[in-house]
Design a binder for these strands. Structure first.
Length: 631
RNA sequence: GGUCCGGUAGCUCAGCUGGAUAGAGCAACAGCCUUCUAAGCUGUGGGUCUCGGGUUCGAAUCCCGACCGGAUCACCA
């Protein structure tokens, strides 16, 4: 809640008390932004007092409005009441003060401590920021990253940034699923059909190379199944008895038995994949503070399960498998160790959790994982709790929706996946193409104008295209409510106009251009210095509507950061940034900044522009989107 | 079948702790570059907020029930 709302809440309570003798609760003081079709900035809903005041809504509105005008300490400049809505116009002096406060605040939109609502389970002890660990990405090492991973990575990174802004110390982590039958399939196919191919020999990225052999395995495996079925076997049997599958399983056993040859091959191929992933992550702009590998954590999980067995939290069946009975929690029974003693996904997650809490004083653990695993995390939460881990109950599964294609889900085997590297390539190439067109259509600027794209080097143009292309992609994905499934149509390219990342980047670039010009010899460096001083003397004039609307929008930024943090929603930041950019473009269109003759007005507008740029950049940084200085 | 999530304009999505005549973008159409970057601005058309009940001054928003779509309920991850 910003200070305006706090002040008005206090005033409104006093008004209701003075006029009707009522002690209003916070919930009864409903303030909302005034709709644009009415005059005013902020609106008090008077319905909650109508019944007790025993008067018509209109009369109540007028009475409270008058009271605020007289007793509002100059905050309320005027008002109008329409039906049950009291629209208040706040004084220009207040808004100008707000703008100056924002300008002076180097960390505007960042908080020292998490809000009450988001505060951790551990009793507030000592000072400093509580620690949140955010797990995201978590790839398998048998195929390259696709669009589904892109959504995960962007959400995970953005959530980490947003929570940092909300006062958490954040550790970004990744659990790499580097072992299991899927890896063995790729290894086996490579051994059989690879002819020693390496990333160096073929020029392929390591993750793509491994992915190709994973696909190859599937193809050969299917052929074997068909063969066996043609020979009279039923499908079940054929799948089970296909030689390739038997070999893959044998390889997995050898891996678990530490067979030196299998381990060496596994290590080599994983290195290829990691090199490929690193490149993709770097390009995407995401990073991790600590990486865990499943091959290092699954044994820890097993031993935790053994402990749980000893303590009676779990039980063993006759065939040797270990289970947790969750029927008391309204769930099923859950397998933790197979009858042959090998571990499952859940076992590994228990081990990973344990290691993490050994490594860090975690107050809150967040898993960025798709919504198809909701059941898994519900179970994990209960199991960790049963094993005596204090964080178990409080873990957060940040469950996000699938990315769907027009004909349904992406399926690796059907070749309908949208590859992450290809997609980024295309976005950047599109951005480069579009910017070429722009340069040709800019008729109104002289050749070599440094504030347009003319006269810049190829390398600079490439860098701009990189920022814009990735900005378009990231915004496209992050603007959708994370909980919802979203649709991506590969046949339609992602927009660069309208409610998009480039729109916001463009707004920023325009402002930078204005600011650069404001420092030109013509205006003198005095322009910079005169911002604050000139603004302080508004020479009795009143703010333009569009100036006021922009300032008001700027004051809403901290609330947007709060909400985004509490709701785990980068989309909230997108919506805010878009609204701010819209407001600025409208202002920019109607009012001149540098050509404004009145020094005080010019200074205010420059101050406004500079802070819009600051907030846009801050907001986009929370989304992992970089801003170009010109475009 | 049980549980969870979703259904808003032709398309993609906001709005959902109840508030004024439900908003953007794309697509379509019509305007605006001698003036700070036209990736922009302005305007037109486009809606039974899936359907039916309920709660109340007021429901896209909350409750109940249908219908439709998705996810999940593995000795997969």
């Amino acid at each position: 809640m910003n200070s305006l709302e706090q002040q008005l809440t206090t005033l409104a309570k006093a008004a209701v008390k003075a006029l009707y003798g009522l002690d209003a609760t916070d919930a009864q003081i409903q303030l909302q932004k005034t709709r644009p079709e009415f005059e005013g900035n902020i609106t008090l809903v008077v319905f909650p007092f109508v019944k007790l005041a025993r008067k018509a809504p209109q009369a109540v509105g007028d009475e409270i409005g008058n009271w605020l005008l007289v007793n509002g300490e100059g905050l309320v400049a005027k008002f109008n009441a329409v039906q049950g809505f009291l629209n208040l116009s706040i004084s220009d002096a207040f808004w100008v003060n707000q703008l100056q406060a924002i300008d002076a605040d180097e960390t505007y939109g960042r908080f020292e401590r998490p809000s009450e609502k988001a505060f951790p389970f551990r009793e507030g002890e000592g000072v400093g920021s509580p620690l949140m660990m955010v797990e995201y990405s978590s790839p398998n090492t048998n195929k390259p990253l696709h669009l589904g991973h892109v959504r995960n990575n962007l959400l995970g990174y953005s959530i980490a940034k947003i929570q940092e802004a909300n006062g958490w110390k954040v550790v970004k982590t990744n659990i790499v699923n580097d072992r299991g039958i899927h890896i063995c399939k790729s290894m086996l196919a490579w051994l059989k059909f690879g002819n020693g191919e390496t990333p160096e020999s073929s020029g392929k990225k390591g993750d793509h190379l491994i992915g190709d052999y994973y696909v190859r395995f599937d193809k050969e495996y299917k052929a074997q199944i068909a063969e066996l079925m043609a020979a009279g076997k039923d499908e079940e049997t054929a799948k089970r008895e296909a030689p390739l599958m038997l070999e893959a399983q044998e390889m997995l056993r050898k891996w678990e038995a530490n067979d030196p040859e299998v381990r060496a091959l596994w290590a080599k191929m994983n290195e290829w994949v990691y090199a490929g992933f690193d490149e993709t992550y770097k390009r995407m702009g995401v990073s991790f503070d600590k990486i865990y590998y499943e091959s290092n954590t699954y044994l820890e999980g097993k031993s935790e399960v053994e402990k749980g067995l000893a303590s009676g939290a779990f039980y063993r069946r006759e065939d040797g498998s270990v289970w947790a009975d969750l029927t008391k929690d309204g769930l099923d029974e859950k397998l933790l160790l197979r009858s042959d003693g090998t571990s499952v996904y859940m076992t590994q997650d228990i081990g990973t959790a344990k290691l993490r809490f050994q490594d860090y004083p975690i107050d809150k653990m967040v898993y960025v994982v798709g919504n198809e695993q909701e059941y898994h995390f519900k179970v994990l939460s209960i199991l960790l709790d049963r094993l005596g881990f204090p964080f178990g109950k409080e873990l957060v599964h940040f469950s996000y929706g699938m990315v769907e294609l027009p004909n349904g889900k992406m399926k690796s085997r059907e070749g309908t996946v949208v590859d992450a590297d290809d997609l980024m390539d295309k976005m950047v190439a599109d951005a480069r193409e579009i910017s070429k067109d722009k340069v040709h259509t800019l008729r109104s600027f002289p050749e070599g104008d440094k504030n347009t794209l003319q006269g810049i080097t190829e390398a600079e143009a490439d860098e701009i295209a990189r920022k814009v292309g990735l900005g378009a992609l990231k915004y496209f994905i992050l603007k959708v409510d994370p909980r919802k499934n979203m649709l991506f149509n590969p046949a339609e390219s992602i927009d660069f106009n309208g409610n998009t990342g480039p729109f916001i980047q463009y707004t920023y670039a325009r402002i930078q251009s204005v600011l650069r010009k404001s420092y030109s010899p013509k205006d003198g460096l005095a322009a910079e210095r005169s911002y604050s001083e000139a603004v302080l003397q508004p020479s009795g004039r009143s703010l333009e509507d569009k100036e006021l609307a922009l300032i008001q929008r700027l004051t809403e930024y901290p609330a947007a950061v709060r909400t985004a943090g509490e709701d785990f929603s980068p989309a909230v930041i997108c919506n805010y940034a878009y609204a701010l950019a819209c407001d600025f473009n409208s202002f920019y269109h109607d009012l001149s900044i540098l050509n404004e003759p009145d020094e005080s007005k010019r200074a205010l507008r420059l101050l406004l522009a500079r802070n819009v740029a600051k907030v846009l950049q801050s907001a986009m940084a929370l989304l992992g989107i970089e801003m170009p200085e010109r475009m």
